[in-house]
Amino acid sequence: MNMQRREALKAGGGLGLFGLLAAAGLITPSQARAEWNKSAFDAKTIEETLKALGATGAQNSTDIQITAPDIAENGAVVPVGVVSALAGVEAIALLIEKNPNPLAASFMLPAGTEASVQTRVKMGQTSDVIAVVKVGGKFIMTKKEIKVTLGGCGG
């Protein structure tokens, strides 16, 4: 009885591992994917976030455009886009200064992907939205104020 149980466990365990590996192989992209940057997403201030991103001292630049409304009626869904005409942009991060955790999203752009991303974010209140762009190993940033008439983080 015991032996059978052991064998069953063994077989089951083996199958489970195999299934996991197969699933991992199927779903995980072949390219190495960066770990979710917990310290950057947990940061509470712009400075902490920039530090966690390794972007401390990012210079203001006019080469980045933030496309977003000046006034957002609904803070739960604010369309924000970041566009840059610069070549060789490697990464884009989107920060909202007055949110509990400023970092909203970060994007890694492999060569060939244009510096143009759009998404929708939640904003608790009127705030500056900051786009940080990594180009040629250096960080640059720009900001735009978006006025929110109805916050997006209420219950």
Partner: peptide, 15 residues
């Protein structure tokens, strides 16, 4: 062609 990391500030039903 793109890798992204999201925080909680991305809207419901992300676009």
């Amino acid at each position: 062609v793109l890798a992204a990391q999201f925080g909680t500030a991305v809207s419901k039903n992300p676009y």
